[in-house]
Design a protein around this nucleic acid. Sequence first.
DNA 1: TTTCCAGCAAGAACGATTCTCATTATATAC
DNA 2: GTATATAATGAGAATCGTTCTTGCTGGAAA
Lengths: 147, 147
Amino acid sequence: MTTSSGLDREVETRLAEHRIRYTSGRQILVRALAGAEGPLSAAELHDEVSGALPLSSIYRSLAVLEEAGVLAPHHGTKGLTRYELAEWLKGHHHHLVCIDCGAVEDVTVNDHHENQVDRVVNEISSKAAFTAFNHALEIEGRCARCA
Amino acid sequence: MTTSSGLDREVETRLAEHRIRYTSGRQILVRALAGAEGPLSAAELHDEVSGALPLSSIYRSLAVLEEAGVLAPHHGTKGLTRYELAEWLKGHHHHLVCIDCGAVEDVTVNDHHENQVDRVVNEISSKAAFTAFNHALEIEGRCARCA
DNA sequence: TTTCCAGCAAGAACGATTCTCATTATATAC
DNA sequence: GTATATAATGAGAATCGTTCTTGCTGGAAA
């Protein structure tokens, strides 16, 4: 099983550390997520790959990839869990969540603003005796398509 | 049906504008949420009120109160939706989400930092042609209890 | 090649949420 | 104050996303 892209290579290495195989089904999911604008749910991935993988396999693979730190979950409306590539693969970003269609779009901000956000996160965490691992600004509103 | 607290009065007024009654069951839920440290799920509220309201009624009332803008939903781990009083009732705040126990704690920051966050939100939204209605900094990590 | 085990597919099971429907309570008209 | 219309309730069935179970498959290593 040859790896084609740099992404595949990075994921394969990570999975190898966890003694997990980077099978074709898992590659399909990772590539689908790499080409997405934002997090996707199991059902959305099922559509995206045109049923090439059964839903039950998608759920299992998503759980495996999350466990290995390749994917990060995002819990959205209607009990839907969407997944996206973890930040070490796709970079730190925030979320625009549409209250109409539920779609989530990834956005990044410049370093200056990101540093400000970091400071706020640190202040909050230290005050609350909370050990912060990650953070995201979740901005709720209406996307351009639903406006 | 006399209102006891200022909160009850505010909620009652809001519901009246929507031609919705502030029944005793709804009062029980609003008061339970007013006394909570963070958002609660339907099941947690069911426990909180010791089964005084059936689950089906709790779900229906939560939906009604959300529709009227009295409650705001928060989607957490394991497909659980937790509710809290809307920001016009409890003030703007952010969330500390424990990756172990799943609990959500509300936190506020001082105006200086809040303004910085606002600026970042505005920058992101305008760049993405997104109409922002609300935002929250979701900080993931381990709470003091699970540390 | 044979053995072994991670991964797979299909469907059952599960749990949170929503829906249905008959009953009860509340407001408004008379 | 009673009648009538409308809103809300409670109990349980139904739904839907997700997870689990079971038996099978296919690739890695000896």
